[in-house]
């Protein structure tokens, strides 16, 4: 997945930080749903939801990034992405907008306490810095 300036991204937030996923990879964005927990899976995998008859796993970006879990708010969304053969939901605090980046920098080793491997790059916007997620790493983190 190459991050280029031409691509459109969906920008979303967790706590005060902003992140983005290429719009091309996004299947849809839905409101928070009841999640069925599954025992003995990776801790950041929260469980599964019913997405119009399809069973879709959901993971918590907060947990993955080592932040405190927070109860679902009105603004909480599940960003459903297509990755390889899988459809996976990612829980975020809020979805901001569709964005493009005039400049994308390679990620440093650590981005605000988070492993730099989770990012393909850091996008620059008028509003500040946005971490562009590397889905391969986010979804398949061991």
């Amino acid at each position: 997945m190459q991050a280029t300036e031409k691509d459109q991204y969906v920008e979303f937030g967790i706590e005060a930080e902003q992140y983005a996923i290429r719009i091309h990879d996004i299947h849809e964005i839905i409101k928070m749903q009841e999640i069925t927990q599954i025992p003995s899976v990776k801790p950041y995998v929260k469980g599964v939801i019913n997405l119009r008859g399809k069973i879709v796993p959901v993971l918590s970006l907060r947990k993955l990034f080592g932040m405190e879990e927070a109860p679902a708010e009105k603004s909480t969304r599940i960003v459903v992405v297509n990755h390889l053969e899988d459809t996976v939901g990612i829980i975020v605090d809020r979805v901001n907008k569709v964005a493009t980046f005039s400049d994308i920098q390679p990620p440093p080793d650590r981005v605000g306490g988070i492993d730099g491997n989770f990012f393909v790059g850091i996008g620059l916007t008028a509003g500040g810095l946005v971490g562009i997620l590397r889905l391969d790493e986010v979804l398949l983190h061991e």
């Binding site: 599954i38 069973i55 879709v56 796993p57 053969e85």
Partner: peptide, 27 residues
Amino acid sequence: IKSLGAYIGKVEGIAGATILGDGSVAL
């Protein structure tokens, strides 16, 4: 019976899942 999908993979003790009348997922 629906599978939990390749992403979750095989979970010890769980044969799969189904969707109940209220729309929720049951293991």
